[in-house]
Design a protein around this nucleic acid. Structure first.
Lengths: 207, 207
DNA sequence: AAGAATTTATCACGGGCGTGATAGAAAGAG
DNA sequence: CTCTTTCTATCACGCCCGTGATAAATTCTT
């Protein structure tokens, strides 16, 4: 038939280029032309794989969401039953899992940045509204599950409201990631982990 | 001499119009033309009071920062010495002060939105970098002072790291405000207050 | 009334944008 | 080779943008 290009791979290349532009210059400047340049492609090629800017953006955000979601799901599986570990080990495992949402290295930093820009845009851009909502719901579902597991293990202060704690944990991770991304000099990666650890330890009661 | 217009008032009008546009349509769409329209002015008039877009933006962000900072400083004064109140009253006062950073009503919601958009833009726009840094530092200074006062009153769990707790509190408020602004259906204002209260109570130890 | 300064209103330019249309190149299929 | 399909590459259009330049209107002062 035609040329020997894998369309799926091309789309991923373009999306990755988009992410690089967003991380470097912001969503504002992620125009079709800029993305094409970053990908080393002609704008015509990009438009051959994506009908327009809107489709590219939606596809990219969906990709990012799937990417992170997959990692988190695999992380949850990897942890398995918390009951099988010692108390401090449980916290370490949960912390490691949640740290996936913190910009502790270049990859996670890029993910947090992209996520930040997209969700901010979703506030006024209806094209992103549904995905943003799904992302928020997913985060809370994850937090809720983690907290529920901790609760089953008897590690949560009795009488605490799981719904409130879910929101609190989600807000903490969001705010922490944001701060670390926007002001890396005042909130370094280690500081991030430290704050998360402190939160988990206080949740479990300090011993 | 000339016309009887108070330049300072005009500048404020324009800035307020800018805020309205940012809240409604996002910083992205806050062009000089859109702001002028929103203010009911001609673009020429706007440009008579602001040399260019950059000056308008910087002035606006500075205004917002001053506005919130002033309110918070006045709030801190209003609280006075924590020792004069009962334990639960102390938490209530501190909560009321910190709630100034939460989108609990239209005014605060607008402030949080503007702040969110500006700080996100500051990540890639050098024009906002310094102001964003100052804002972050100010927030942390406030958190630090509040926590220090609580500590002096003996209301903090002994042995907790004030630096870490400062960052944790700042992250929580940031993330909470963000969530409430982006997903008001899942994080309603009352929920916001609830989460903040839970955090403060846990900080003080539940009694 | 006249003048001077401020304030308002336009016009024009160059630039970036998304996008429709379309031509040209590449490569397997017959 | 020729054809057909895929892939690249351009061009052009209209839109919105910030901004420089400049005219026009307004209003206080003299």
């Amino acid at each position: 038939m035609p040329k020997i290009v894998d369309p799926e791979a091309r789309r991923r290349e373009v999306v990755d280029a988009l992410f690089r532009v967003v991380v470097r210059d912001g969503l504002q400047r992620a125009s079709l032309r800029a993305v094409a340049d970053e990908a080393g492609l002609n704008i015509g090629s990009v438009r051959h794989y994506f009908a327009g800017q809107r489709e590219l953006m939606e596809f990219a955000m969906r990709s990012m969401l799937d990417r992170v979601t997959g990692r988190l799901l695999r992380g949850v599986e990897g942890i398995g039953d918390l009951g099988a570990h010692h108390r401090e080990e449980r916290l370490r495992l949960v912390g490691g899992l949640l740290a996936e949402l913190l910009p502790l290295d270049a990859r996670r930093r890029a993910e947090v940045v992209v996520f930040l820009e997209f969700t901010a845009a979703a506030r006024t851009d209806p094209a992103f509204a549904e995905l943003s909502h799904r992302a928020a719901a997913g985060t809370r579902r994850l937090m809720g599950r983690v907290l529920a597991r901790l609760d089953e293990s008897g590690m949560l202060r009795p009488g605490c409201d799981l719904g409130v704690e879910t929101e609190r944990l989600a807000a903490l991770l969001d705010g922490l990631g944001q701060a670390a991304v926007l002001h890396p000099d005042v909130v370094a990666p280690e500081r991030c982990a430290e704050v998360l650890t402190a939160h988990l330890e206080e949740l479990a009661g300090i011993q």
